[in-house]
Nucleic acid binder design. Structure first.
Lengths: 334, 334
DNA sequence: GTTCGGATCTAGATCGTTCTAGTAACTCCA
DNA sequence: TGGAGTTACTAGAACGATCTAGATCCGAAC
C-alpha cells in the first residue's frame, strides 16, 4: 500500500506487448507507422501496466513540450479569472499550461525561471512588472506574450486592452448622464495606472472639464482611503482604478450616508466577479479578460508554431452598465 | 533579435573551460571533487556562455525533481492565500512547487495528471473532492497530502483543521456573549460543510439550545440568499460557513436595516483577507492557513525523504475577534 | 521470376545530464 | 623504495523517451 513501485517505462510496455520500444513510442504519440491490431495490443498493454509517458525524457529528446508558461499574481483575484480562460483555450489548442505564481517573497523572475525550467515553449505574463530590458532578455529564449500591459518593447508580444479607450468610454458615459464634477481615484503604482491617469486627464479636458485625480491603488483599502479624502468636497461621480478600489470608495460613501448612485455615481474597471455580485451591481469597464486570455494563448501558440515577428494586439474595452451610475442629483448647478 | 539560439550545454562549457563534462557537472551542482582553481575557471566559462542546467535532463538522470505538486481551485480566493504560504515553505526546504488549478471545465483529475507529468515527487491537494478510492490510486504512485480535508482514507496523508473544535469555539463564544438563538448558514455541498453542520448540531445541543441550520454555500450569493430567508424570524447571531458567505449574510442584514453587531452578531470562518478589510472587520474562526500550508509541505517533504506511513495532522483553529460579534440586544428575553 | 514500393516494424544513435568506476599524480610514512 | 591513501580528474554507461535509417514482409507490376 505504502510502497511506491517504479513507474513502468516504454521498455516494460514493449516487453509486455512483445514489440520494440520504438513501436510503442509510435503508438503512444499516435504517429503513423503501426497497424491497427498492434496499436490495439500496445494500448491494451500500456493501460494494463498503468503506463504514463515520462515527460522529462520525452521532452529532452523531442524538444517539443506543448507547454505554455503562465505567470500570475496570487494576490489578484482578477488574475485567476484569466487563468481559467487560459486553461480552456490552451486545452482547445492541444497545449498544457504550467502555472507559476508571483507571491510574497517570490519575485517575477523566480516565477519565470521556474516556468522555463518546466520547459515552457512560450511565456505568458499577466501584467508583468519587469523592465523592458529584462523582458527582452527572456524573449531571446522563448516567445514572450505580455498580457494587460503593452509598453513592453519590440521583441515582446503583447495583448492588451486599450486603457485610453476604456477611460474615454467611462468619461463619455458619465458626462452623457450630466456629470461635470468627476474624480479619478487612480491606481498608484499599479500596472496601467499611469495610462489611465493620463487618459483621464486628456478626456476631461476634451470635455472642457477639470481633471481631478486623487491617489488610490488597486485594493479595497486604497479605495476606502481615497473615498474618505473626498469627504467635504464630494464630486458627483467617481471613476475608480479597478473594481476593488471602487468597492472601497463605495464603502466610504456608505459610511458618510451618501447613496449610490443617487448622490454619487461610481464606476469600476475590470468587470470582475466583485462587480457582478447581486448586492454590488457595479457599473464597470470590462476588458473582457477571458477573450484577452484566449488571444494571448493563441498568440503564443502561433509564435511557437510558425516563426514570425512579435505583434501587439489591442482590444477595445466596453461598458457594462449596472446600478452604480446614474444622473447627478439635481442640485445647485450654475 | 527574434531568433532563438540553442542553449549552451555542459559539453559547451566543458570545451570552453578545457575540462571534461563530468567535472563541469561536479562544479555546477557544488559536489566535492574539484579543486578551487578549476572550480573558478569552470564557473567563469559557464557565466560567460550564459549556461543554465537543463532541468529535464538533470532530473531524468537523477530521478529527483525536488518538485511538489500543488492543486488549488482558481475560484477560491482563500486557496491562493495557501499557495503563497506553500511557496515560501517549499523554497525554505529547497523544493520548487508545480501549480495546477482546478477550474471551470478542468476537473481535479486533469490537474493531478498534469502535476504528475511535471514530475512531482509528492502531491498536495487543497480540499480535494475526489473519492477516497481515486485518492488512494494516486497515493499508490506518489505521497499524497490532503489539505483541509481529513476523511481521506488510510493511504493518504492529511493536514487539516479541527472543524468540530472550530464550531465549538464559535458556539461557545456566542453563548458566552449571551446569545441563545443562533443559526448556522451551512456550506451546502462544499468540502467540510457536513462536518461543520454536524458539529453545530452537537454543540448547540450541548448548550441546551435548538440547532437551527439554513442552507447556504461557499459564496457571497449563497450567504445573501440564506440571510434573506431569515428575514422575519431573525436570530440574534449567525455562524456562517465561511467569510464569503458571512459577507453575503451581512449584506442581507444591511438591506433590511439591521445593524451588525447591535441587532445581529455574525461570525465567519477562514479569517480570509475579506474578514480583515478595515470596513468589514469580521470576527472569524481562523484555520491559520499559512501554518497548515507549511505543515502540508513539511509532511510532503518528509514522506519523500524518509519512507514512512501516512499521518493525519489536525490543528485546532482559533477565534479572531473583530467587530461583528457582540452582546445580543436586550429585548424580551423570557 | 525478379523488381519495386508501400506498410510495418526494429536497431541503435541521440538529447543533456548524473553516476560509477577507474586512472594519474601526489603525499605520507614504514 | 614502495605500497596505501588522498585528491583531481575523465571515460563511458546510464536515465526514458524520440528519431533516423534500415530490415522484413507482401502483393503488384513488368
Amino acid at each position: 500500500m505504502t510502497e511506491q513501485q517504479r513507474r513502468p517505462t516504454l521498455m516494460d510496455v514493449a516487453r509486455a506487448a512483445g514489440v520494440s520500444r520504438a513501436l510503442v513510442s509510435i503508438v503512444m504519440r499516435g504517429a503513423p507507422g503501426a497497424s491497427e491490431p498492434t496499436r490495439q495490443k500496445v494500448m491494451e498493454a500500456a493501460r494494463e501496466l498503468g503506463y504514463r509517458p515520462d515527460s522529462r525524457a520525452r521532452l529532452l529528446r523531442s524538444s517539443r513540450t506543448k507547454l505554455l508558461g503562465l505567470s500570475f499574481s496570487s494576490s489578484q483575484p482578477f488574475h485567476t479569472e484569466i487563468v481559467d480562460a487560459a486553461y480552456a483555450e490552451a486545452a482547445a489548442r492541444g497545449y498544457e499550461i504550467a502555472l507559476s505564481a508571483v507571491a510574497n517573497g517570490r519575485p517575477e523572475e523566480r516565477a519565470i525561471e521556474a516556468l522555463l525550467d518546466f520547459g515552457s515553449e512560450a511565456l505568458i505574463l499577466i501584467s508583468p512588472t519587469l523592465s523592458n530590458q529584462d523582458l527582452a532578455r527572456y524573449a531571446g529564449q522563448v516567445p514572450l506574450v505580455s498580457l494587460l500591459r503593452n509598453d513592453v518593447g519590440e521583441s515582446v508580444d503583447s495583448v492588451s486592452s486599450d486603457d485610453h479607450a476604456g477611460i474615454r468610454i467611462a468619461v463619455d458615459h458619465l458626462t452623457a448622464l450630466g456629470h461635470r464634477r468627476i474624480v479619478h481615484v487612480d491606481g498608484g503604482t499599479a500596472v496601467s495606472a499611469d495610462q489611465r491617469r493620463a487618459a483621464f486627464h486628456t478626456e476631461m479636458l476634451r470635455h472642457g472639464l477639470e481633471p481631478v485625480t486623487v491617489p488610490g491603488g488597486p485594493t479595497e483599502e486604497d479605495g476606502l482611503r481615497a473615498g474618505q479624502s473626498l469627504i467635504g468636497d464630494m464630486p458627483s461621480a467617481i471613476i475608480a482604478f479597478n473594481d476593488r478600489a471602487a468597492l472601497g470608495v463605495m464603502e466610504s460613501l456608505r459610511a458618510t450616508g451618501l447613496q449610490v448612485p443617487t448622490d454619487v455615481s461610481v464606476l469600476g474597471y475590470d468587470d470582475s466577479q466583485f462587480a457582478r455580485l447581486s448586492y454590488v451591481q457595479l457599473s464597470s469597464i470590462s476588458q473582457d479578460a477571458p477573450l484577452l486570455a484566449a488571444a494571448a494563448v493563441d498568440r503564443a501558440v502561433e509564435r511557437i508554431e510558425t516563426p514570425q515577428p512579435p505583434a501587439h494586439l489591442v482590444r477595445t474595452p466596453h461598458l457594462v452598465l449596472r446600478r452604480t451610475t446614474g444622473h447627478p442629483a439635481p442640485q445647485m448647478q450654475p
